[in-house]
Amino acid sequence: MKTIFTATILGLFSFSTYADTQQTHHTDSATGAKTWETHVDGVHFSLTQILPDQAKAFYVNRGFSLEQIEPYTSSCVYMTVLRNDNAPGDIHFVSNNWSILVNNKPHKLVPVSQWVKRLSDAGVKKSAVIAFRWAQFPPEQEYKPGGDWNQGMLSIGLPADSIFNITAKWDIVGKEYEAKLEGVQCAK
C-alpha cells in the first residue's frame, strides 16, 4: 500500500496546458488515469477518469454483480469535482444542462434518475442502489463561496476511447457562467 501511495505521488505527472482555456491535464502514472481541470471565475472544475475495472471494484463491493453494473462502468465514468472557491456569489447548477460535444455533435448525459431506475428494474438490491445514487455527482446543487464542493461519479455515456468537449454551466443570481474542458478522453 505504501509503495502504491509513494508511486502515486511520484507519478505526478506529465503536464500540459491549453493557454486559451486555462485548462490543464495530467496522468497518474500509478493508475494511468487522466485528469482534465480548469479554474474559471473562482470555480474549480475537473474530470478524472475512473477506469472500468476501478468502477467495477467499487460497485461490486457495494453489492452489485458484474453483470448489473457493467453497462454503467463501460459508459465513460469520471470522478467529477466542482468547487466554489471564490466565485462572486452562490453558484447553482443542473448537470443535465451541461453541454457535451462529440465530433462537434451534441451529446446528452444520461440522468442519474434514469440510471437509478434502470438498476432498480434490473433487481439490484436497495442498499446497492442507494450507494450508487449517492456516489454520483449531484444532478443539481448550490455552492457557497469559500469552499463548498462535491466530488462524485459522472457517466458521460460514451464508448471507451471517445473524445469529447464538455462545458459545465452554472448561474449566480440568474447570470450564467461556464467552464469548458476540451479534448477529454474516455478511458480505454
Binding site: 500500500m1 502504491i4 502515486t8 505521488i9 493508475t31 488515469a33 485528469t35 476501478q54 470522478m79
Partner: peptide, 16 residues
C-alpha cells in the same frame, strides 16, 4: 483493485 481505487480516490486525487 478496490484497495487501489481507495488509494486513488483518497491519496492521488487529494494531491490534486
Amino acid at each position: 483493485l478496490t484497495a487501489l481505487l481507495f488509494v486513488f480516490l483518497n491519496n492521488s486525487h487529494s494531491q490534486e
